[in-house]
Write a protein that binds this DNA or RNA. Structure first.
Ligand SMILES: [Mg+2]
Length: 622
DNA sequence: CAGTCGCGTACAT
DNA sequence: TACGCGACTG
């Protein structure tokens, strides 16, 4: 909900902003908005209780994009406690979800996939489990990148918590879809974030949208928003954003709290004010001003200090401070200093293929990832396995992780280290200590006054089973892909180059070896191996996959495939003069929260413009 | 007309 | 969480 019709009313205070302008800043993220979007890719699965984590992928891809641009994300979640002032709205939403659930069942039974998905979306709720999963993935990401992804779980709503980050200058920008943020006083809010660009609204430019208000103040802006209708107080009948503006304008310098009951006199006779409205108005404003937030220095506090003589008891509707307020250092609470203080060797720049007209841009060469694969991973010995340990991060009370404790010694130092394995990974119980492991990803936390090395990802030194990173994207659906010929752009004979992701590069060891070889050729010998695109029939149904092959001494070797959604756009121009060139864009070692290994970006040049779908996907190629 | 209200629809891969 | 649309009203 937020404030009704506010965003359109603020166009004069809105300006586009791109990720390039944000390099080096801290960005606080309203997690619920990204979670909601991520849910769209797997709403049905969630609804049916099937296991899925693709909402995590959406979330983490966006986080990664920020990290690549040296932006520090600070992720803020809604809290588990219901806010009294929002009870009514919350109840309405519950009701809507219940209805959506029933509609979803009906659509599912009728086999109406589209409608079912839609209703599943409306029925979707962000569960603590999802929050946990996001946080866990991010811890892994954090360990991987040695970079900080900070989190705060707000005690009540994320909005005032985000505002606090802005007001305390902890964050430079807030990314959200919620207009409440401006009312809470956030200084710079970004709406409609598309991964690399969005619409920025600065508090100090708000006045531009209210040219009729002679002496615009932020307080007047707040009054207008509440009058126009907010989560804590519905607007009076026939009162909208314009009516609110008119009232505040007509009010001049008079005391608004004395005059709300007379709104009808100021803006016309068709508005009646119920007796309880003035009090409710005051309470709504107080909720925006004094809602309880988590203050990293002081524990739970109101967003702004209570007025003299008043205390939390006077604002119970804005959320009571929770018991046992944790006081913690916000920045990287659970990652040890030595991990975080490592010099940041990464130097990423991202240039999206910008431009909304179909002018494809020359693909830019971003600085490659630093090559972690060249670091020798030391062998560690697990000396003992001990008790279970449940751990709740100090400032993130909604999450608990189950660990198994253990003792480690490493190749290099003889000292014994207390360590933790995720209890869900039963491999650690397969052998009786001592046994050797190789730690791929780890970080340090403090739990119960003891420092532990958390071993997030590891393998046996001599693996009893050969486990490779598998990607199951070679499965194809039974869609009948129509190979449409290009239509209207025949007259454009200019060269257009776009990047493509090569899929399935982690499918076999050999593919990885070829990529590594090609990388070395490029870096050490300054020669670039040739690429060939070879259409393959992958099943009797005439479905085609386009293999990406690299010429090695053994001849052309497949390293992966073009994403199957892109096949229909590339296949028609293969072996024609429209396809001018296919070459390696970049080969680098990539570590993500879900996978790691050599990956390849492919550049294909064609005469004439690419289909819009191709241009769209290319923006997400890193 | 301008403004408000209520509904249906999109968001991702 | 918006958005856009058509409908209603002063
Ligand atoms: Mg919110």
């Amino acid at each position: 909900m937020g404030i009704k019709d506010l965003l359109p009313a603020l166009v004069n205070s809105t300006q586009p902003i791109t990720i390039e302008e944000m390099v080096g800043t801290v960005v606080a993220i309203d997690a619920s908005s990204w979670l909601h979007r991520g849910i769209y890719s797997c709403a049905k699965e969630l609804f049916l209780g099937q296991k899925t984590d693709s909402y995590i992928k959406f979330f983490m891809d966006r986080i990664e994009l920020l990290l690549r641009n040296r932006i520090t994300p600070l992720v803020v979640f809604d809290g588990p406690s219901p806010l009294p002032a929002k009870a009514q709205v919350a109840a309405e939403r519950r009701e809507k979800r219940t209805i959506a659930k029933q509609l979803a069942w009906i659509s599912l039974r009728q086999g109406d996939e589209n409608r079912a998905r839609q209703h599943c979306c409306s029925a979707a709720e962000i569960t603590p489990d999802m929050v946990n999963n996001i946080i866990k993935s991010s811890i892994v990401l954090q360990a991987l990148k040695d970079k900080g992804v900070d989190f705060v779980v707000a005690p009540y709503e994320a909005d005032p918590q985000l505002a606090l980050m802005s007001l305390s200058r902890t964050a430079d920008y807030i990314i959200t879809e919620d207009t409440n943020l401006l009312v809470y006083g956030a200084k710079q809010v970004i709406y409609n974030w598309e991964g690399d660009r969005g619409q920025l609204i600065c508090q100090h430019l708000l006045y531009r949208s209210f040219p009729d208000l002679p002496d615009f103040t932020f307080q007047k802006f707040q009054y207008i928003c509440i009058l126009a209708g907010c989560d804590y107080l519905k607007s009076l009948p026939n009162m909208g954003i314009e009516g609110a503006k008119n009232f505040v304008k007509a009010l001049g310098d008079r005391d608004i709290f004395m005059q709300v009951k007379n709104i009808g006199l100021f803006v016309g006779g068709h508005i009646t004010v119920p007796p309880e409205y003035p009090d409710n108005f005051k309470m709504a404003l107080n909720t925006f001003t004094y809602q309880t937030v988590y203050n990293p220095d002081k524990g739970y506090t109101p967003l702004h200090e209570y007025p003299p003589g008043l205390s939390a008891a006077d604002f119970t509707y804005a959320g009571l401070p929770l018991p046992d307020a944790p006081v913690a250092d916000l920045s990287r609470t659970w990652v040890s200093e030595d991990v975080l203080n490592k010099t940041d060797q990464t130097d990423f720049t991202f240039k999206g293929t910008s431009s909304s007209d179909d002018e494809s841009t020359e693909s830019t060469h971003s600085t490659p990832y630093n090559l972690r694969s060249q670091q020798q991973k030391p062998i560690s010995t697990v000396l003992s396995i001990g008790e279970d340990l449940k751990w709740t991060p100090p400032s993130f009370p909604v999450m608990t992780i189950d660990f198994i404790t253990g003792t480690l010694s490493s190749e290099h130092s003889q000292t014994h280290t207390q360590c933790l394995f995720e209890a869900s990974d039963r491999r650690v119980l397969l052998y009786t200590p001592p046994f050797d492991i190789i730690i791929q990803r780890s970080c340090t936390i403090t739990a119960q006054n003891t420092s532990y090395l958390v071993v997030w990802e590891w393998g046996f030194h001599e693996p009893p089973i050969n486990f490779e990173a598998h990607r199951n994207d070679t499965e194809s659906e039974d869609e009948s892909d129509m190979f449409e010929l290009d239509s209207d752009s025949e007259d454009d004979d200019r060269d257009h180059v776009l990047p493509f992701e090569v899929m399935g590069v982690a499918h076999s060891r050999r593919r990885q070896e070829v990529l590594e070889w090609a990388h070395d050729e490029m870096v050490e010998r300054n020669s670039t191996p040739q690429v060939e695109l070879i259409p393959e029939r992958i099943n009797p149904l005439d479905e085609i996959a386009i293999a990406v092959c690299i010429n090695t001494a053994r001849g052309p070797e497949t390293v992966g495939y073009i994403a199957k959604e892109m096949t229909q756009y590339v296949h028609p121009i293969i072996n024609t003069n429209r396809l001018t060139c296919a070459r390696i864009g970049r080969i680098a070692f990539r570590t993500t929260y879900e996978n790691y290994g050599w990956f390849m970006k492919l550049l294909i040049t064609r005469k004439g413009t690419w289909d819009r779908a191709v241009i769209r996907q290319s923006r997400h190629i890193m």
